[in-house]
Amino acid sequence: MKKKLSTLSVLYRVLARDIRVALRRQSDVAAVFFFFIIAASLFPLGSGADPKLLKAMAPSVLWVTALLSCMLSLSRIYASDHADGTLEQIMLSNQPTVLIVLMKILAHWALSGLPLVLVAPLIGVQFNLSGAELQTLALSLLMGTLALSLIGSIGAALTLGIRGTGVLIAILVLPLYIPVLVFGAGAVNAVSIGMSANGALSLLGAVLAMALVFSPLASAAALSIALE
């Protein structure tokens, strides 16, 4: 009898496979990325070239566009695996579904949230943000987008197999995104009025920690209902 793989190596394979599948469909990944760049660049064009105004609205604009871009790709986490039967195999894995779900969320984040974190400081320059603000923006997005993927996964799992999921996911998930938006944009705002961002970032970290624990559990439960 061959030796069974350890939990970690199974999880690594799930992560690697999800990233590989996403990279074979580069247009999906690129769509999220360019949506963010274009949407965020439209605001300065529409609001005129007042540097003060741009600076004042930068945190909320960048955060809201990041949030909407993340939401665009949510249905991708489970939809194709549901359509081709892979999800059944995942439920029948000898590893806990919760951990596999967590890997799928991480893979989703690596290709939708992480690119935004990397490009956001560049976009921030368009809005006349200072170095300290850009740093806080990147840090808050780093934690925030991961929380967005985690929370969004619950919505994606709950709407699995329902027609017209796009709008339904938005209605389910957007209210849950509010704390992430408030603390994420709040951190950048705090820096721009000369205060410390630590308070807002700690609260954002707390939201992330909660999402990290509860979201995979809720998603796995929703998936097993969807497959029933």
Binding site: K2, K3, K4, L5, S9, V10, R13, V14, R17, R20, V21, R24, R25, S80, D84, T86, Q89, I90, L92, S93, N94, Q95, I100
Partner: peptide
């Protein structure tokens, strides 16, 4: 998964049940 090759698909299916 249609985007993966036959071998890649099998590797993943096997991994899910812990088989190398």
């Amino acid at each position: 998964k249609e985007d993966l090759t036959a071998l890649e698909n099998l590797q993943f299916s096997l991994a899910l049940t812990g088989d190398s």
